[in-house]
């Protein structure tokens, strides 16, 4: 397998360069670009980022591994990120998570066999006022309950 930035992203990288004093500072923006482009960060991307930033591939891998929102394996088509922080816990995220687990037959960190769903438990999504909250890919779903959850999942294309 190999990785290459898309021409569009290469253009973005050129624009980003002028925003930072040194190419080393591009590490996180580039990791995001890779994840946007591929849905996850394949091993080969560390080399590509290392070359642009002048870090070693290991430096990139180390930095990336610090951030739980960066993934090293492809997620399902629908990546469900369910909040497990304080407000959502008080408002019943545990019940939602159990419901999800039973419904999809997978635990957090796993992907369904048909590749449709991945569940991940994340820290505060910044949506405490409308807890419990979750994201599916980049879309927020708030003030959830099990009924609402079922409808959301059923209406996914």
């Amino acid at each position: 397998m190999s990785f290459a930035f898309s021409p569009e992203n290469l253009g973005k990288i050129e624009k980003l360069r002028s925003r930072y004093p040194s190419p080393k500072a591009l590490t996180l923006p580039l990791l995001w670009l890779v994840q946007e482009q591929e849905g996850y960060i394949p091993g080969e991307a560390f080399d590509a980022i290392a070359e642009i930033t002048t870090w070693s591939p290991m430096d990139i891998y180390k930095s990336a591994s610090f951030y739980t929102m960066l993934r090293f394996e492809p997620a399902g088509k629908y990546h469900i990120k369910i909040c497990r922080s304080l407000s959502c816990t008080l408002c019943g995220q545990a019940m939602l998570y159990r419901h999800l687990r039973e419904k999809l037959g997978i635990k957090a960190g796993e992907t369904t066999a048909d590749g449709r769903f991945t569940i991940e438990r994340v820290e505060c999504l910044g949506s405490c006022g409308t807890a419990p909250a979750m994201q599916i890919n980049d879309i927020y779903y708030e003030e959830l309950n099990t009924l609402k959850l079922d409808t959301i999942l059923e209406n996914l294309p």
Binding site: G43, S56, P57, M58, D59, Y61, K62, S65, F66, F72
Partner: peptide
């Protein structure tokens, strides 16, 4: 040692908190 002495960079501490561990690059 691998980053400053041999400059071969094979090893790093990956992850954080109680999951942090010493590792080579994948594969």
């Amino acid at each position: 040692f691998t980053s400053n002495i041999t400059k071969t960079n094979e090893l790093g501490i990956i992850g954080r908190g109680d999951e942090a561990h010493v590792s080579t690059m994948p594969g």
